[in-house]
Design a protein around this nucleic acid. Structure first.
Length: 595
RNA sequence: GGCCCGGUAGUUCAGUUGGUUAGAACGCUAGCCUGUCACGCUAGAGGUCGUGGGUUCGAGUCCCAUCCGGGUCGCCA
């Protein structure tokens, strides 16, 4: 058993001491990071969340049994008492901020012994993530992970401070709510009291924050967990945190302007980076046309060009037929890549776009000695000339073409664009590319369900000039919705909401809800809207994802203390687990072992 | 549900065409060492080659199945 603290009090964190503390008697506590045992002289790097302080045990100057010092191993928890001393010039460690001083220890308490950890607690670890997650509490001792969580904390504080200073009020909303089959799958919680009934965990506090606007809370925010039972990705966890806000008596520009100031302040305080306002805005249409994505990364070029008009009557049927069917033919010019990309690499890019549904990808390589391409033989010289002119085709370029339904064309070329940028190292690390995407379509057609579904959510306000088409041609209606995009990743999104019960009913009708079904699912909200609802709108950030980008990481798990793995389980606790039969019985649940 | 990648000492990895007793580094254990900081020196322990089956005289290596982890498509209002 470890020794007790009794009257020992910590003077400060390990790395908080500087040369100005030389000569002071201090008590430090922390973990034994590494030990260098020279016999009658033992050095230990004492570590806590502030960093490292070297402590020295000199047998000739130590009060107590020196064998206790010799027994210290990695990750033992120690308390040491001694004096801060200046290191001699030749023993300074320039790699440590505290490298010019050390603590000469007179007294030691071993507060806890430790088993040899399953991996070394060090930065730049190569340990596989599986093991790190099983022993997450040890992984979190690494300064790399501590920095990530500190950054995240700084962001939360910054957001809270800004929102507080701007008249926002944090209000908690329920975690046990009514399930709504629209959108992402809900996590369900069975009710003990109501046999056969379930709560859902919120996918977002959407309805509640709108009801708070009805209540007159004007400016609301919440830093809040949200839950979605969908498959995971590198930047997607089943439970994640939003910085969620809602404002009354505003239009889209007001929400955008306020959030630009929030982002500016956060980048300044957290990253010491100046953001120039206003941020650029792209309409959804422009983002798709130019970048093939509704979250464009504009740190590099390789923009898409539409060639449909040139090839619509081409003898090359692959192209002309997709245009005839309402699709398009678009292309990217990979400038100067004709010699860089070998045939095998071009073939692998052709395979790459097939992931996104493209049946193939055509290309023209412009060489000194002419065009090299599998498709030019099917085209007239006029067509080729027109393509070259529009694509700015020069000797040394390769032009990649995809013709298909628009969705496939955008997905394929949008992702090819990112792939090429990576291959050609076009993205400068450490730069921040913030922009808004606006004027999203209000609805999109869902092939499976044979109906229009809300693209954002069904409470999104149509643009004033498009409202008239809501019933006749919903696919033409644009929404008062906006996404904030950072380096090609959506970090937040929001909209102005419908605040009229009549319009809300029309919206439900346009997305295939019967009035009965709409009232059954959202009746309490539409009822509320009858009692005087201010125009309102808001926005929510994905905190984990934003933190990930600011930390320069590629996995959201690195920004979450205790994340889930790809199959939504926790490697540390083993959750989810089977539960006791009596628990199930209380919840009126029987498990179908065959499913 | 589909596709791709990975799993060999505690950890990170190597392991040739299927061929002797599966190696290295770090870590760990013991001993020595008063200025180390990747401490050093000496000695040592440590392996279900993810799991199960198959082919073979012989499997870490080939085949099948399966488990675990990662990336991704679908999915994510």
């Amino acid at each position: 058993m470890g020794e007790l603290l009794t009257d020992w009090k910590r003077t400060g964190l390990c790395a908080e001491f500087t040369e100005s503390d030389i000569g002071k008697d201090v008590t430090l506590m922390g973990w034994a990071n590494t030990r260098r045992d020279l016999g009658a002289l033992i050095f230990i790097d004492l570590r806590d969340r502030s960093g490292i302080m070297q402590v020295v045990f000199d047998a000739s100057d130590f009060k107590g049994d020196f064998s206790r010092v010799e027994s210290i191993r990695s990750e033992y928890v120690l308390a040491v008492r001694g004096k801060i001393v200046k290191r001699s010039e030749e023993t300074v460690n320039r790699k440590l901020p505290t490298g010019t001083i050390e603590v000469k220890v007179r007294e030691l308490k071993i507060l806890s012994v430790a088993q040899t950890p399953p991996f070394e607690i060090e930065d730049d670890t190569k340990v596989r993530e599986e093991l790190r997650l099983k022993y997450r509490y040890l992984d979190l001792r690494r300064s790399e992970m501590q920095k990530n969580l500190m950054l995240r904390n700084k962001m939360s504080i910054c957001a809270r401070k800004f929102l507080d200073e701007n008249g926002f009020m944090e209000i908690e909303t329920p975690m046990l709510i009514k399930s709504t089959p629209e959108g992402a799958r809900d996590y369900l919680v069975p009710s003990r009291i109501h046999a056969g009934s379930f709560y859902a965990l919120p996918q977002s506090p959407q309805i509640y924050k709108q009801l708070l606007m009805v209540s007159g809370f004007d400016r609301y925010y919440q830093i809040v967990k949200c839950f979605r039972d969908e498959d995971l990705r590198a930047d997607r966890q089943p439970e994640f945190t939003q910085i969620d806000m809602e404002m009354s008596f505003v239009e889209a520009d007001d929400v955008i302007a306020l959030n630009e100031r929030l982002l500016q302040q956060m980048f300044k305080e957290v990253m010491d980076t100046d953001i120039t306002l206003p941020l650029r805005r792209f309409t959804y249409r422009e983002a798709m046309d130019r970048f093939g994505s509704d979250k464009p990364d504009t740190r590099f070029g390789l923009e898409l060009k539409d060639l449909s008009d040139i090839v619509e009557n081409s003898a090359f049927k692959v192209f002309s037929s997709v245009v005839a069917k309402g699709g398009s033919v678009r292309a990217i010019n990979a400038k100067g890549c004709a010699n860089l990309l070998a045939r095998r690499e071009i073939d692998s890019l052709v395979e790459f776009v097939k992931i996104y549904g493209a049946k193939g990808m055509a290309w023209i390589s412009i060489r000194e000695d002419g065009l090299n391409s599998p498709i030019t033989k099917f085209m007239t010289q006029e067509e080729i000339d027109a393509i070259m002119q529009r694509m700015d085709g020069q000797v040394g370029d390769i032009i990649f073409f995809v013709g298909d339904k628009n969705k496939v064309v955008f997905d394929s070329l949008g992702n090819l664009r990112l792939k090429l940028a990576e291959r050609l190292s076009l993205i400068k690390e450490g730069t921040f590319d913030l922009l808004w995407v606006t004027e999203f379509p209000l609805v999109e057609y869902n092939e499976e369900e044979k109906r229009y579904v809300a693209m954002h959510h069904p409470f999104t306000m149509p643009m004033d000039e498009d409202i008239e088409h809501l019933e006749s041609a919903p696919q033409k209606v644009r929404a008062k919705a906006y996404d904030i995009v950072l380096n090609g990743t959506e970090i937040g999104g929001g909209s102005i909401r419908i605040h009229s019960p009549e319009l809300q009913e029309k919206m439900f009708a346009a997305t295939g809800f019967s009035s009965e079904k709409a009232w059954d699912q959202f009746g309490y909200m539409m009822e509320a809207f009858k009692y005087g609802t201010p125009p309102h709108g808001g926005l929510a950030y994905g905190l984990d994802r934003l933190a990930m980008i600011l930390a320069g990481r590629t996995s959201i798990r690195d920004m979450i203390a205790f994340p889930k793995v790809q199959n939504a389980s926790c490697l540390m606790s083993q959750a989810p687990t089977r539960v006791d039969k009596t628990q199930l019985k209380e919840l009126h649940i029987k498990i179908d072992e065959n499913s």
